[in-house]
Design a protein around this nucleic acid. Structure first.
Lengths: 136, 136
DNA sequence: ATAATATTTGCAACCGTGTTGCATGAATGA
DNA sequence: TCATTCATGCAACACGGTTGCAAATATTAT
C-alpha cells in the first residue's frame, strides 16, 4: 500500500506535509518526537501544522504515541492492521539509555497482574530499558 | 522513623516545607504531581522551591517519580529500603482511567523479555491501566 | 549564645511542548 | 471550473520544567 493510499484509507487528504512526515516515520526504526521531525524535515511546515499532522495520524490510527521519560510525545508508525482504539496493546517499547531511541517490540507475553481487591486491570503497558544494538 | 529522621538520614536539612511535603506524600495513597502538592498545600512555598524539594527527594531516594500519560511527573514515597539508584525496579504502577490516580503495585513478576539481536534489557517497567477500587 | 558557613528559599526570567482561534490557501468532488 | 471542505500559517497563550542570583534560614564551630 502506498503512502497516499494509506492516508486516503483513513480518510485523510493527501498533502506534501503529510506525505513527507508519514514517509519519515515509516522509514525510521524508532519513535520520533515532533522536534525530531522538525530537525529531519526543516522548513517543511509550521510547528503547529506538524503538531496537528501528528495528532491526525494518531487519531486516524496511522501511528501510535508513546511518552518518553522526559515526558514528551514520540510517534511511530503502526502495523497496517492497527486501529486508533486498540493499537496500543499489541506491543511493548524498548528504550535505549544511550541514544534515547524508542523501538517497538512485539511478541511479548503479558504477565498476570496481581492488584489489590477492587482494582480492575484493562491493559498492561511494558517498557523495556537497556541498550540498543547500535549503542552496544 | 519520623519524618525528620527520614530527611536527616538522607543528608537533607529539615525545613517546614520539606516536612510538610514529605508528610503529604507519605499520607497519600497515590502519586502526586507538583500541581497536586500546590493545591493541597497552598501558599506553602514558591513553585520553584517545590520543584526543587521534589527533585531533592527523588535524588535522595525518598520518593520515586513516574511520568503520567500527560507527560507530567508524579511523585510517591518509596519503601524505606529504597535507594535512589534501584528503587524503580521494585514495583509497578497502576493508573486509574477514571480518576487518573497512580498507585504502587508490588509483587509483580517480570516477564521474560524477547528483544532483537544485539539489544540488552536492563530494566522492565510495567504500567497497569484500569479502574481503582474507589472508581469501580 | 554568637558568629561563620553552607544550604534553602523566593523572585524574575527563560525554554520547550502543547494548544486554540482565525484568516488564508490548497485539495477534493460535482 | 466552481463550490465546498479541509489543511496551513500566524499570533498568541497555557503549563511544566529550569537556571541564576540575592536574601533568609539551618547547621556548625567558637
Amino acid at each position: 500500500m502506498t503512502i497516499e493510499e494509506r492516508l486516503r484509507s483513513r480518510g485523510l487528504r493527501v498533502t506534501d506535509i503529510r506525505r513527507d512526515v508519514l514517509h519519515l516515520l515509516q522509514e525510521s526504526d524508532r519513535a520520533l518526537s515532533q522536534a525530531d521531525v522538525e530537525r529531519a524535515l526543516p522548513d517543511l511546515a509550521d510547528r503547529v501544522t506538524l503538531f496537528r499532522v501528528l495528532h491526525n495520524f494518531e487519531e486516524a490510527g496511522l501511528v501510535h504515541r508513546v511518552i518518553d521519560p522526559q515526558g514528551t510525545s514520540r510517534y511511530a508508525t503502526c502495523a497496517p492492521t492497527c486501529s486508533a482504539d486498540h493499537h496500543h496493546d499489541m506491543h511493548a517499547h524498548f528504550r535505549c539509555t544511550a541514544c534515547d531511541g524508542v523501538f517497538c517490540v512485539t511478541g511479548l507475553e503479558q504477565p498476570a497482574a496481581v492488584v489489590p481487591k477492587g482494582f480492575t486491570v484493562h491493559e498492561v503497558r511494558i517498557e523495556l530499558v537497556g541498550r540498543c544494538a547500535t549503542c552496544g
